[in-house]
Design a protein around this nucleic acid. Sequence first.
RNA 1: GCGGACGUGGCGGAACUGGUAGACGCAAGGGACUUAAAAUCCCUCGGAGAAAUCCGUGCGGGUUCGAUCCCCGCCGUCCGCACCA
Length: 894
Amino acid sequence: MTLAANHGEGPPETSLLLCEDPAMATERYNPRVSEPRWQKAWEEARLFEAAQDDARPTYYVLEMFPYPSGRIHIGHTRNYTMGDVVARYKRAKGFNVLHPMGWDAFGMPAENAAMQNKVHPREWTYQNISVMRDQLKMMGLSLDWSREFATCDVEYYHRQQMLFLDFYEKGLVTRKTSKVNWDPVDQTVLANEQVIDGRGWRSGAEVEQRELAQWFFKITDYSEELLSAIDGLKDWPEKVRLMQRNWIGRSEGLSIRWALTEETAPAGESEIEVYTTRPDTIFGASFMALAIDHPLAKKAAQTNAALAAFIEECRRIGTSAAALETAEKKGFDTGIRVRHPFDPEWTLPVYVANFVLMEYGTGAIFGCPSGDQRDLDFANKYGLPVIPVVMPEGADPATFQITEEAYGDDGIMLNSRFLDGMTNAQAFEEVARRLETATLAGRPVGARKVNFRLRDWGISRQRYWGCPIPMIHCPDCGIVPVPKEDLPVRLPDDVSFDRPGNPLDRHPTWRHVTCPKCGGAAQRETDTMDTFVDSSWYFARFASPHAEGPTDREAVNRWLPVDQYIGGIEHAILHLLYSRFFTRAMRATGHLDLDEPFKGLFTQGMVVHETYRSADGRWLAPSEVRVENADGQRKAVEIATGETVTIGALEKMSKSKRNTVSPEEIIDSFGADTARWFMLSDSPPDRDVEWTDDGAAGAHRFVQRVWRLVSEAAPAIAGTVPQAAKTGAAAAISKPAHKALKAVGEDIERLAFNRAIARIHELVNELQGPLSGLGAGDDAARAAARQAVEILIHLIAPFMPHLAEECWAKIGGEGLVAASRWPDFDPGLVVDNEIVLPVQINGKKRGDLTIARDADQAAVEEAVLGLDFVQKALGGAAPRKVIVVPQRIVNVVA
RNA sequence: GCGGACGUGGCGGAACUGGUAGACGCAAGGGACUUAAAAUCCCUCGGAGAAAUCCGUGCGGGUUCGAUCCCCGCCGUCCGCACCA
């Protein structure tokens, strides 16, 4: 049955359930009544507001804040539930917890909505926020709403403009003309990170290359630091650390200056500088290749019409990044020749080639066909020499050849004069050493150089709904920053969205200002900032959301770094790298005193759901489908038509595939606790979880089961003083409770929520019997039961906070569970005096041995050899060996 | 092409540092209660076998008293980067 088909019927509301004894009739737990009640109680007690003047140790847990798209998605709720479990647990452990929430509220969907629905982006955004805030509140999240802000609040972007000006003063902002990724549909510039397979990440349109003057943050100033500091991020997933390392892309090589021959050099040119990571292969060089934008290529084209035509053709074909990736490797011989740095008699042709990138290295390469497949293809196409210079160890230099497949691995040098016989690593050093001391025009020919793949961060966006860049263009003074006292630069309200492009550009008055320097007529910068800027420091603003400056330094230093940050893997590079840069830039400008914003990072999996498709190809929502189980086969039927539906793969919930289940539906049917519990059970939090109605129903059964267990035990334990029992029958109550208490705490610390949940299930299974048979006379059992129930309530509280409060009230607990301390386990109760040791014979388990926990090795060995099945296996012979792993296992080798 | 992760019952998964493989949940089957249903409770649930027992963590080897875990070689799935010189 689908969830929505169940909707309405739902679980019985407050029906009375008849138990064996009518006097014990237990009302079903009704989340629809309980959950709002406890949410109100928490809010009134202001339990989740983090105090600045609190001596307890701080703990900052943060989930990536949502974009206010309109409704909370189920993926959000899983993310926030994880953070909430941590927040509630840490609070119970005595930490002063900061767990804030805000809105990543600038961005294009608001403008798209404005264009489609004639609604102002501001109105659309704040309306969405209001809806989504209510939805989040229904989840029972322990958030500090007093710190809430949206990045489109003028109070927030005002401070962001302050930061921009500070960064500018510090030299961390530049304006440069550069080739940018232009999205022709959204009419805006995209960062490299926003181009996926040559297409805009949002519009899906093929991205074009354009030359534009843009504002950049100089993230490359921190390339080395951002890379090396990754080693210190011990509580980050290895996967993310690796992705960041690859993205920064450090390589060590040599830059080499090649002299042009005098007779072929264009006027005023005398050399080409190339960057290589393989200087060892320099004797395998057979051509040079320049990017089409390389200054020398441009110069040569001035006097060479055919070359100019070639460059123009490449530019035309190569306007989109997608085309670049599939384009054939093509080159054009410029006629220019260079001299080999180790042999002035040896000259090489200089080509202009469409595959050389101006943005990386120096925009020029030397081609070594034998060591690089792309160079080999190029050489074969244009009939250039192929000289093998590196061969696998053990190969014969006399016969080793390269024809169709290049050899790019490590090996031994050949055909390389003074390098022959060296390893390529030795040859690298030798070439570097010699070229560093050789000179050309009075300067060294070669220089060791570290290169990075990372580019500066272009932040200009030709959009309205973003943070205005506080700069002014004066015809006389040039670029002039807006004086800080003139901030904020507010977005105008009266804008139109009837055309694509930037409404700020065509606003009648907004852009016209007087120059702060000369007082003359000047123009405002109409670009706004990339929304990734907004999310690069919001975590710092939460520490002091109402501070006059961007941060209150004392507060931010106190709370940061974020102890546990939780979000999707899709932000492994962009958002996290930008935030790491921003933190450093804010340190450099005196806004805080730390390097790394996020101490612990956790990337959670998605919530996925089956997809349903009708015979005529329509996607069907789960609520439109009934799934039946017939002869062990699952069958889906469209409710409206009765037609059979194809059950498709598990996919991320999406509007297009219609495989969504909304948080409201779930809360309506089962309550927030059930949703929270289900989303964290079964699947490990870093993996995807499949939303199934059966699973949700199972979680709800458990909610009711806990409620029944506690409320049925309540009469027997009300007014009883909790007391653990170490011996006797009551120990069967205390021991599992304390063991679970220890294990669940450890599991939450490790974010192993699925394991914690399994442990709680076990505890309930173990308590079921003893608690249902509680006699009035047995004081020890009642005291132990009281304590075990209190422990159980504390264990479920981070996951199912409303149910925990209801249970707590039921047994007459004082105050709120949300405000109470996590109980301490008794170490004496989590170990048993007698243990059951598995006994193996030749590595296979053949039986058990029950023995005192502290029995020494000899005693264990003796007892094992006395066991019937051991003696039988040995057949009277002495064992060859007996391995006793203390408190683990015994292995008898026969 | 480069880099990485993963592969365990019908399903999601557990198994800590090399020490009882399958915890816990879901699904399924059987039973109890009920006029009936729902709810609840009990039992079964990797494969073969009547049982003893044997086999079993993608496949093939290896190390070890002992391997889901470590090593070597394959196969498969997923992810990231990708003309990076």
